[in-house]
Write a protein that binds this DNA or RNA. Structure first.
Lengths: 147, 147
DNA sequence: TCATTTCCGATAATTCCAGTCAAGAATAGG
DNA sequence: CCTATTCTTGACTGGAATTATCGGAAATGA
């Protein structure tokens, strides 16, 4: 199972959302702002955030001065659950989901299972908060050359 | 990241091929035998093995009593290179292939890169020989637990 | 009321996947 | 040489997934 644009947009958008949540905690941010800030198609983001809301990752408020806000602190939202909400649990091969009836006598299944576990470890231990911190490090810590 | 049927068939087929290579080393095995032994569509396997040959993983001999044989010992063929030959290097997101022009200022790229590295570690350290050994362990009835 | 914004379903364009089909070329054995 | 076997290659297809876009409905604050 692939990590699609939906998941990638979601991660970017949540990073942006948590950036804004730092300055004005809890205040809803319109999707249009987020889409604009990161160059993502608004109507596609709407689909993405609908799924994020159903998964309990963001909260929404409708109407004027509405928008989306984080349902939990950014440091408690893992990349894994974001991906799971949009693409399902990422698995390199279907064997790893009990769909392979040969798994009990197929040595190959084990390697796909190990691969999936490695993926889950990385994605499950990285939070949106981490990504925001990394982004800040890139912006601030990157060498600044003057023209 | 998609590990397609091609790669999965390839891994299964190479395991079968190395099993036969054990009893009669270097002897070409017709694809029909391999397809039959593991219930895989022959004509699809032909595509798969054409790619494996181009990648230098197997050798072919045409004609009667021809077939495919391993180009190297099974213990020197990693699952990673098999997957790479058929699906390309597995990557969870395109960012990790230099296609994302935002990578230098996008904190999200880092997590996809780490995920890819974790995948490559698992797949790159498992060989077809390992899979054959695991399969034998499974057949021998001894349950095998791997950490 | 009105502008804003989320919500929801339909649809379209494109690409990918898994598998099939068909014709051709090389080879061993007789 | 003849023939069955086997690899080689490319085109093709049906279905599914991906990546959106469109149009409007419902809620909400000013």
């Amino acid at each position: 199972m692939n990590i699609s644009m939906k998941s990638r947009y979601a991660v970017r958008a949540l990073t942006e959302l948590s950036r804004r949540d730092e300055s004005e905690p809890g205040k809803p941010v319109p999707l249009g702002d987020i889409a604009g800030a990161r160059g993502m198609p608004l109507q596609f983001l709407e689909q993405v955030f609908a799924a994020l809301r159903r998964a309990g990752i963001v909260r929404s408020r409708r109407g004027a001065s509405g928008g989306y806000s984080l349902a939990r602190p950014a440091t408690e939202i893992t990349v894994l659950e974001v991906v799971a909400a949009l693409d399902g649990v990422p698995s390199p091969a279907e064997c790893t989901q009990g769909l392979c009836d040969r798994a009990d006598r197929c040595g190959a299944a084990s390697v796909w299972i190990e691969a999936q576990q490695a993926l889950e470890t990385v994605l499950g231990t990285t939070t949106v908060g981490d990504l925001l911190a990394r982004e800040d490090a890139l912006r601030g810590g990157a060498p600044m050359y003057h023209i």
